[in-house]
Protein backbone atom coordinates (compact mmCIF):
# COMPACT_ATOMS: atom_id res chain seq x y z
CA UNK A 1 0.00 0.00 0.00
CA UNK A 2 1.11 3.56 -0.61
CA UNK A 3 2.49 5.44 2.33
CA UNK A 4 0.05 8.34 2.24
CA UNK A 5 0.20 11.09 4.84
CA UNK A 6 -2.79 11.64 7.12
CA UNK A 7 -3.44 14.86 5.26
CA UNK A 8 -3.63 13.05 1.90
CA UNK A 9 -6.00 10.48 3.41
CA UNK A 10 -8.11 13.25 4.94
CA UNK A 11 -8.42 15.16 1.66
CA UNK A 12 -9.14 11.87 -0.13
CA UNK A 13 -11.81 10.74 2.32
CA UNK A 14 -13.37 14.17 2.80
CA UNK A 15 -12.46 16.11 -0.33
CA UNK A 16 -13.16 19.85 -0.09
CA UNK A 17 -14.96 21.77 -2.83
CA UNK A 18 -16.14 18.86 -4.95
CA UNK A 19 -18.55 19.82 -7.71
CA UNK A 20 -19.08 22.37 -10.41
CA UNK A 21 -19.59 26.13 -10.26
CA UNK A 22 -22.63 27.02 -12.37
CA UNK A 23 -21.38 30.49 -13.31
CA UNK A 24 -17.69 29.71 -13.37
CA UNK A 25 -15.71 32.10 -15.53
CA UNK A 26 -12.58 29.94 -15.63
CA UNK A 27 -12.53 26.23 -16.36
CA UNK A 28 -9.41 24.14 -16.75
CA UNK A 29 -9.43 20.55 -17.88
CA UNK A 30 -6.42 18.21 -18.00
CA UNK A 31 -5.82 14.48 -18.30
CA UNK A 32 -8.04 11.83 -19.85
CA UNK A 33 -9.67 8.49 -19.16
CA UNK A 34 -6.93 6.71 -21.05
CA UNK A 35 -4.26 8.32 -18.88
CA UNK A 36 -5.94 7.03 -15.74
CA UNK A 37 -6.40 10.45 -14.23
CA UNK A 38 -8.13 13.66 -15.13
CA UNK A 39 -9.05 16.91 -13.40
CA UNK A 40 -11.60 19.58 -14.22
CA UNK A 41 -11.18 22.78 -12.24
CA UNK A 42 -13.87 25.46 -11.95
CA UNK A 43 -13.01 28.98 -10.74
CA UNK A 44 -15.19 32.01 -10.06
CA UNK A 45 -12.95 35.04 -10.49
CA UNK A 46 -13.87 38.62 -9.53
CA UNK A 47 -13.32 40.57 -12.73
CA UNK A 48 -12.59 43.82 -10.88
CA UNK A 49 -9.93 42.55 -8.51
CA UNK A 50 -8.80 39.36 -10.21
CA UNK A 51 -9.40 37.56 -6.95
CA UNK A 52 -10.55 33.91 -6.92
CA UNK A 53 -13.88 33.93 -5.09
CA UNK A 54 -14.64 30.24 -5.33
CA UNK A 55 -13.01 27.04 -6.59
CA UNK A 56 -14.47 23.60 -7.20
CA UNK A 57 -13.31 20.47 -8.95
CA UNK A 58 -14.23 17.15 -10.42
CA UNK A 59 -11.61 14.45 -10.72
CA UNK A 60 -11.11 10.94 -12.01
CA UNK A 61 -8.12 9.37 -10.35
CA UNK A 62 -6.47 7.72 -7.42
CA UNK A 63 -6.37 8.91 -3.82
CA UNK A 64 -3.50 11.33 -4.39
CA UNK A 65 -5.18 12.82 -7.47
CA UNK A 66 -8.33 13.49 -5.46
CA UNK A 67 -6.34 14.87 -2.52
CA UNK A 68 -4.20 17.08 -4.78
CA UNK A 69 -7.30 18.57 -6.40
CA UNK A 70 -8.93 19.15 -3.02
CA UNK A 71 -5.77 20.82 -1.71
CA UNK A 72 -5.45 22.99 -4.80
CA UNK A 73 -8.96 24.41 -4.43
CA UNK A 74 -8.30 25.21 -0.78
CA UNK A 75 -5.04 26.92 -1.66
CA UNK A 76 -6.32 29.15 -4.47
CA UNK A 77 -9.48 30.44 -2.81
CA UNK A 78 -9.11 34.11 -1.87
CA UNK A 79 -5.90 34.54 -3.84
CA UNK A 80 -5.55 36.78 -6.87
CA UNK A 81 -4.83 35.06 -10.16
CA UNK A 82 -1.23 36.17 -10.06
CA UNK A 83 -0.78 34.87 -6.53
CA UNK A 84 -2.43 31.60 -7.46
CA UNK A 85 -0.20 31.10 -10.48
CA UNK A 86 2.82 31.20 -8.18
CA UNK A 87 1.64 27.95 -6.58
CA UNK A 88 3.93 25.16 -7.76
CA UNK A 89 3.17 21.48 -7.77
CA UNK A 90 5.66 21.16 -4.91
CA UNK A 91 3.53 23.61 -2.93
CA UNK A 92 0.52 21.36 -3.48
CA UNK A 93 2.50 18.32 -2.34
CA UNK A 94 3.80 20.26 0.66
CA UNK A 95 0.28 21.36 1.59
CA UNK A 96 -0.55 17.65 1.86
CA UNK A 97 2.51 16.81 3.93
CA UNK A 98 4.17 15.21 0.90
CA UNK A 99 3.26 12.70 -1.80
CA UNK A 100 4.99 9.43 -2.72
CA UNK A 101 7.45 10.24 -5.51
CA UNK A 102 5.62 7.95 -7.96
CA UNK A 103 2.53 10.09 -7.38
CA UNK A 104 4.07 13.51 -7.98
CA UNK A 105 2.36 13.67 -11.38
CA UNK A 106 -0.92 14.06 -9.47
CA UNK A 107 0.27 17.40 -8.07
CA UNK A 108 1.60 18.37 -11.51
CA UNK A 109 -1.90 17.74 -12.84
CA UNK A 110 -3.27 20.20 -10.27
CA UNK A 111 -0.81 22.85 -11.35
CA UNK A 112 -1.65 22.27 -15.02
CA UNK A 113 -5.40 22.49 -14.40
CA UNK A 114 -4.88 25.82 -12.66
CA UNK A 115 -2.84 27.17 -15.56
CA UNK A 116 -5.46 25.93 -18.02
CA UNK A 117 -8.26 27.58 -16.03
CA UNK A 118 -6.44 30.92 -15.93
CA UNK A 119 -5.67 30.71 -19.65
CA UNK A 120 -9.35 30.01 -20.22
CA UNK A 121 -10.30 33.06 -18.12
CA UNK A 122 -7.91 35.29 -20.00
CA UNK A 123 -9.20 33.98 -23.30
CA UNK A 124 -5.80 32.58 -24.20
CA UNK A 125 -5.44 29.45 -26.21
CA UNK A 126 -4.16 26.74 -23.94
CA UNK A 127 -0.66 25.69 -24.82
CA UNK A 128 -1.96 22.25 -25.58
CA UNK A 129 0.56 19.44 -25.64
CA UNK A 130 -1.21 18.15 -28.75
CA UNK A 131 0.44 20.75 -30.95
CA UNK A 132 3.81 19.12 -31.25
CA UNK A 133 4.32 15.38 -31.69
CA UNK A 134 4.76 13.92 -28.23
CA UNK A 135 7.83 12.13 -26.94
CA UNK A 136 5.66 9.78 -24.88
CA UNK A 137 2.90 8.55 -27.15
CA UNK A 138 1.11 6.63 -24.40
CA UNK A 139 0.50 9.63 -22.14
CA UNK A 140 1.05 12.28 -24.79
CA UNK A 141 3.83 14.21 -23.12
CA UNK A 142 5.80 16.69 -25.22
CA UNK A 143 9.52 17.31 -25.15
CA UNK A 144 8.80 20.87 -24.02
CA UNK A 145 6.88 19.59 -21.00
CA UNK A 146 9.61 17.09 -20.13
CA UNK A 147 12.28 19.78 -20.38
CA UNK A 148 10.29 22.17 -18.19
CA UNK A 149 9.78 19.59 -15.48
CA UNK A 150 13.42 18.46 -15.52
CA UNK A 151 14.61 22.03 -15.12
CA UNK A 152 12.01 23.02 -12.53
CA UNK A 153 12.65 20.04 -10.27
CA UNK A 154 16.33 19.47 -11.13
CA UNK A 155 15.55 15.88 -12.12
CA UNK A 156 18.48 13.63 -12.95
CA UNK A 157 17.03 10.19 -13.73
CA UNK A 158 14.55 8.80 -16.24
CA UNK A 159 12.58 7.26 -13.39
CA UNK A 160 12.05 10.68 -11.82
CA UNK A 161 10.84 12.09 -15.13
CA UNK A 162 8.29 9.28 -15.31
CA UNK A 163 7.16 9.96 -11.75
CA UNK A 164 6.63 13.64 -12.45
CA UNK A 165 5.18 13.55 -15.98
CA UNK A 166 4.14 9.89 -16.56
CA UNK A 167 6.24 9.97 -19.74
CA UNK A 168 7.78 6.53 -20.26
CA UNK A 169 5.31 4.86 -17.90
CA UNK A 170 3.44 3.06 -20.66
CA UNK A 171 5.09 1.03 -23.41
CA UNK A 172 8.47 2.42 -22.43
CA UNK A 173 9.34 3.10 -26.06
CA UNK A 174 10.33 6.68 -25.31
CA UNK A 175 12.67 5.90 -22.41
CA UNK A 176 15.74 6.32 -24.66
CA UNK A 177 14.35 9.71 -25.76
CA UNK A 178 13.91 10.82 -22.17
CA UNK A 179 17.44 9.70 -21.46
CA UNK A 180 18.65 11.75 -24.42
CA UNK A 181 16.75 14.84 -23.22
CA UNK A 182 18.20 14.44 -19.74
CA UNK A 183 21.74 14.06 -21.10
CA UNK A 184 21.21 17.03 -23.36
CA UNK A 185 20.06 19.25 -20.51
CA UNK A 186 22.88 18.17 -18.22
CA UNK A 187 25.37 18.74 -21.02
CA UNK A 188 24.17 22.14 -22.14
CA UNK A 189 23.31 23.51 -18.76
CA UNK A 190 25.91 26.10 -17.98
CA UNK A 191 28.13 25.41 -15.01
CA UNK A 192 27.00 27.30 -11.91
CA UNK A 193 27.17 31.01 -12.55
CA UNK A 194 30.51 32.61 -11.86
CA UNK A 195 30.65 34.09 -8.44
CA UNK A 196 31.16 37.83 -8.44
CA UNK A 197 34.78 38.68 -8.05
CA UNK A 198 35.65 39.34 -4.41
CA UNK A 199 38.28 41.63 -3.06
CA UNK A 200 40.87 40.04 -0.79
CA UNK A 201 39.26 41.61 2.20
CA UNK A 202 35.79 40.32 1.24
CA UNK A 203 37.21 36.84 0.74
CA UNK A 204 38.92 36.83 4.13
CA UNK A 205 35.74 38.05 5.78
CA UNK A 206 33.65 35.39 4.06
CA UNK A 207 36.06 32.62 5.10
CA UNK A 208 36.03 33.87 8.66
CA UNK A 209 32.23 34.11 8.68
CA UNK A 210 31.77 30.65 7.19
CA UNK A 211 34.03 29.07 9.79
CA UNK A 212 32.27 30.87 12.60
CA UNK A 213 28.69 30.40 11.40
CA UNK A 214 28.70 27.10 9.53
CA UNK A 215 31.63 25.00 10.68
CA UNK A 216 32.27 25.85 14.32
CA UNK A 217 28.72 25.08 15.56
CA UNK A 218 28.97 21.54 14.19
CA UNK A 219 32.31 20.95 15.91
CA UNK A 220 31.07 22.52 19.15
CA UNK A 221 28.17 20.10 19.14
CA UNK A 222 30.77 17.34 19.47
CA UNK A 223 32.71 19.11 22.20
CA UNK A 224 35.34 20.55 19.87
CA UNK A 225 36.06 23.91 18.29
CA UNK A 226 38.00 25.57 15.49
CA UNK A 227 40.05 28.74 15.17
CA UNK A 228 41.14 30.52 12.01
CA UNK A 229 44.88 31.16 12.21
CA UNK A 230 45.85 32.65 8.87
CA UNK A 231 44.96 32.85 5.19
CA UNK A 232 47.74 32.67 2.62
CA UNK A 233 46.44 32.87 -0.94
CA UNK A 234 44.22 29.80 -1.30
CA UNK A 235 45.70 28.16 1.80
CA UNK A 236 43.49 28.38 4.90
CA UNK A 237 45.29 27.59 8.15
CA UNK A 238 43.14 26.55 11.08
CA UNK A 239 43.64 25.12 14.54
CA UNK A 240 41.37 22.40 15.94
CA UNK A 241 40.59 22.72 19.62
CA UNK A 242 38.81 20.93 22.45
CA UNK A 243 37.78 17.38 21.65
CA UNK A 244 38.86 17.86 18.03
CA UNK A 245 42.51 18.47 18.93
CA UNK A 246 44.44 15.25 18.52
CA UNK A 247 41.29 13.39 17.49
CA UNK A 248 42.04 10.52 15.13
CA UNK A 249 39.33 11.78 12.79
CA UNK A 250 40.72 15.30 12.72
CA UNK A 251 42.16 14.96 9.23
CA UNK A 252 38.87 13.72 7.86
CA UNK A 253 37.06 16.54 9.63
CA UNK A 254 39.37 19.07 8.05
CA UNK A 255 39.02 17.72 4.56
CA UNK A 256 35.39 16.72 4.42
CA UNK A 257 33.75 19.22 6.68
CA UNK A 258 35.86 22.35 6.85
CA UNK A 259 37.40 22.32 3.38
CA UNK A 260 34.21 21.21 1.59
CA UNK A 261 32.13 23.86 3.33
CA UNK A 262 34.60 26.57 2.49
CA UNK A 263 34.87 25.41 -1.11
CA UNK A 264 31.10 25.51 -1.50
CA UNK A 265 30.56 28.83 0.21
CA UNK A 266 33.65 30.77 -0.79
CA UNK A 267 35.80 29.36 -3.55
CA UNK A 268 36.41 25.87 -4.96
CA UNK A 269 40.18 26.25 -4.95
CA UNK A 270 40.65 26.62 -1.20
CA UNK A 271 42.90 24.15 0.68
CA UNK A 272 42.61 23.75 4.41
CA UNK A 273 45.56 22.71 6.57
CA UNK A 274 45.95 22.32 10.29
CA UNK A 275 48.36 24.71 12.00
CA UNK A 276 49.94 23.32 15.14
Amino acid sequence: MWDYTNSVLDHFTNPRNVGEIEDANAIGEVGSLACGDALKLFLKIDQQTGRILDAKFKTFGCASAIASASALTEMVKGKTIDEALKISNDDIARFLGGLPEQKMHCSVMGKEALEAAVANYRGEKVAAHEEEPPVCKCFWVSEKKIREVILEHKLTTVEQVTNYTKAGGGCGGCLPDIKRILADIMHTQAPPAERPKMTNLQRIQLISQTIEKDVAPMLRADGGNIELVDIDGTLVKVRLKGACAGCAGAKATLQHLVQETLRQKVSPDLVVVEEN
Binding site: D37, F60, G61, C62, A63
Partner: peptide
Protein backbone atom coordinates in the same frame (compact mmCIF):
# COMPACT_ATOMS: atom_id res chain seq x y z
CA UNK B 1 -15.99 6.60 -14.70
CA UNK B 2 -13.86 5.92 -11.60
CA UNK B 3 -10.42 4.69 -10.65
CA UNK B 4 -9.54 1.48 -8.82
CA UNK B 5 -7.16 2.70 -6.14
CA UNK B 6 -9.73 5.15 -4.83
CA UNK B 7 -12.28 2.32 -4.63
CA UNK B 8 -9.83 0.05 -2.80
CA UNK B 9 -8.90 2.67 -0.22
CA UNK B 10 -12.53 3.40 0.56
CA UNK B 11 -13.23 -0.34 0.78
CA UNK B 12 -10.23 -0.78 3.03
CA UNK B 13 -11.49 1.95 5.35
CA UNK B 14 -14.75 -0.03 5.53
CA UNK B 15 -12.84 -3.20 6.44
CA UNK B 16 -13.04 -4.84 3.01
CA UNK B 17 -9.90 -6.17 1.29
CA UNK B 18 -9.91 -6.51 -2.51
CA UNK B 19 -7.43 -5.72 -5.26
CA UNK B 20 -7.30 -3.81 -8.49
CA UNK B 21 -5.71 -4.00 -11.90
CA UNK B 22 -5.65 -0.23 -11.92
CA UNK B 23 -2.40 1.46 -12.79
CA UNK B 24 -2.27 3.55 -9.66
CA UNK B 25 -2.25 0.66 -7.23
Amino acid sequence: YIEGEAILLHLSAAGIAASSGSACT
